[in-house]
Amino acid sequence: MTATPAATTSVSVTPRHLWTRTRGLLLAFAILVSAGVALAALHSDSQHGSLDPRSADQYGSRAVAQLLKSEGVSTRVVATLDEATAATGPDTTLLVTVPDLLTEDQQRQLHTATADSGGRTVLIAPGPPSLGILAPGIRAEDPVAVKPRDPACAQPTATRAGRADTGGVRYSTNGQNDEGCYPADGLPTVLRTTDRGPGDTVLLGAPDILLNHRLDKEGNASLALQLLGTRPHLVWYLPSLGDASATDGGKRSFFDLIPSGWRWATLQLTLAAALAALWRARRLGPLVTEQLPVVVRASEATEGRARLYHKAKARDRAADTLRSAVRARLAPLLGVPASAAHSPELLLPAVSARLPAAGRDPHSLLFGPAPADDAALVRLADELDALEREVRTS
Rank of each mutant, 00 (worst) to 15 (best):
L322F: 02
R214E: 11
A272E: 07
S339M: 03
S130A: 15
A265T: 10
D316F: 01
S44Y: 07
A375C: 00
Y309T: 03
T2E: 15
I124L: 13
L187S: 12
A3Q: 14
G186D: 10
S240N: 10
G60Y: 02
D374H: 09
L42M: 11
P362Q: 10
S324V: 01
R231Y: 03
H310C: 03
V295I: 11
P362D: 05
A206I: 05
L227I: 15
D361N: 14
A140Y: 04
D57L: 14
T103C: 05
L210Q: 03
L68I: 01
A79M: 08
V13P: 08
R160H: 13
A63I: 06
A86K: 14
L25D: 09
V169C: 06
R315K: 06
S117Q: 02
P129I: 01
S46Y: 14
T159N: 10
D382H: 13
D316I: 00
A319I: 01
D91L: 08
V336H: 02
V296H: 10
A35I: 12
K147H: 15
V288E: 07
T157W: 11
P286Y: 05
S245W: 01
G162Y: 09
A224N: 04
R231A: 11
H342C: 00
L330R: 04
A7I: 05
R196P: 01
L308Y: 12
T302C: 02
I138T: 11
G168P: 07
A375D: 12
E71I: 03
G137M: 10
T112A: 14
Q106H: 01
S61C: 07
A154E: 14
P136Q: 10
A184N: 09
R108A: 00
V122Q: 03
S299P: 02
D200M: 04
Y182I: 10
A113E: 02
G162R: 10
D45V: 06
A272H: 07
L355C: 06
R23S: 08
L42W: 13
S343G: 06
T393Q: 15
G119N: 08
L278C: 11
D208F: 04
L204D: 06
V13W: 14
V169P: 02
R76Q: 13
L95D: 00
A152Q: 13
G261P: 02
S260K: 12
D45L: 07
R21P: 06
R297V: 07
A40H: 13
L32V: 15
L278D: 09
L228A: 06
T230W: 03
D100G: 14
T97Q: 06
D243S: 05
P207I: 05
P90N: 09
